[in-house]
């Protein structure tokens, strides 16, 4: 089912689901929505599965010509989406008609917006996922970002009788400041005590070198005990590497699967999703948690994530 004709592609728009798990040992990154929570929310708002594929829009939104009557939801960074120039709400089910034009204003804070369609976006399953991995040129629509003239397809699904919205208290509010929790290790013992203190007590600014692979940060330098290289081992999104220059790098979803810099800490899962909204010049502050504290937060987050579909309220 043809859903959208892409009349303007935006800055960087790709198809993403919750990721391609199980292939790290072959060097295949996990990919998937940078802000997994917002994608899952957009999906349940059209009564899809949380992990169905949607469009991930970065910084500057696309313009989409609607090709069929369809229900959609828009979540993520605050963006004032418009249908035929009229503002429409985010975080709720929207009815679109054939020939409507969907457009987006500037993102005030945060940098990624998700749009899902009832039934889910159709793209071939590659290694179990529809996520686009642009560097590897596979997944999504021909393994690349959307271009003008692309047709976005969706799976057929019965339209919903009711429209839903996310209760206000569950809608995340993104600012230019991100407070994230992280577990020390696995190579924290390669840093001096001072270095670790610096990491957990300083503000780090996201540099322009920030994309789906990771964010280079600027801020007080983190001191290594001695050498700043390790024999490469595995990376996961959320790992924080510190190369010799003392400036941390946050690994995100399209990063290479192995790395040769020591990892000072790993960010807790819910905060990795939150950081999916960080953009150049935003500030990140790290605080230390133990594994059991991190897992308590993850449990709470998983309960919320898996229970989203029961928390929606009817939109009037």
């Amino acid at each position: 089912m043809k859903v959208f004709n892409v009349t303007k592609p935006g800055f960087f728009t790709t198809v993403q689901d919750l990721g391609r798990y199980g292939y790290l040992k072959y060097g295949v990154p996990i990919s998937g929505a940078m802000d997994a929570f917002s994608l899952a929310a957009a999906n349940v708002l059209v009564r899809n599965k949380p992990g169905d594929a949607g469009l991930e829009i970065t910084l500057i939104g696309p313009e989409l010509l609607v090709l069929t009557k369809v229900q959609v939801a828009i979540t993520g960074a605050a963006v004032s989406p418009k249908i035929d120039g009229q503002d429409v709400p985010m975080w709720q089910t929207l009815n679109l008609e054939e020939r409507d034009v969907v457009s987006f204003s500037r993102m005030e804070s945060g940098c990624r917006v998700y749009i899902t369609v009832r039934g889910g976006i159709e793209a071939p399953l590659v290694l179990g996922s529809r996520s686009t991995y642009v560097r590897g040129e596979f997944g999504g629509i021909n393994g690349r970002q959307l271009r003008t003239g692309d047709i976005v397809e969706g799976f057929e699904a019965e339209p919903l009788d009711a429209l839903y919205k996310m209760p206000e208290e569950l809608v995340p509010k993104f600012t230019h400041r991100f407070q994230v929790q992280a577990v020390l290790g696995p190579q924290a013992d390669m840093f001096t005590e001072e270095g670790i203190d610096t990491f957990f007590s300083s503000e780090y600014r996201v540099t322009p070198e920030a994309d789906r692979m990771g964010y280079r940060l600027e801020g007080p330098l983190i001191e290594h005990k001695g050498k700043a290289d390790i024999v490469s081992d595995a990376l996961l999104h959320g790992s924080v590497q510190v190369p010799k220059n003392g400036k941390p790098i946050v690994i995100m979803r399209d990063a290479q699967t192995t790395g040769g810099y020591p990892k000072i800490a790993v960010i807790v899962t819910p905060d990795v999703s939150l950081l999916g909204q960080a953009k150049p010049n935003d500030v990140i502050e790290f605080s230390e948690v133990t594994v059991s504290q991190a897992q308590e937060r993850l449990r709470e987050y998983s309960r919320l994530f898996n229970g989203l579909n029961r928390m929606l309220v009817k939109a009037v």
């Binding site: 577990v183 290790g185 081992d233 790992s239 990892k263 790993v266 807790v268 899962t269 897992q295």
Partner: peptide, 25 residues
């Protein structure tokens, strides 16, 4: 550190959802 091969694995937490077992450096 710097010992090359370890006699047994070092078990290290890797965030909230992974475990790293190191056998040497």
């Amino acid at each position: 550190m710097g010992t090359g091969k370890y006699t047994s694995g070092r078990y290290l937490p890797f965030g909230d959802s992974a475990l790293l077992v190191e056998f040497g450096d």
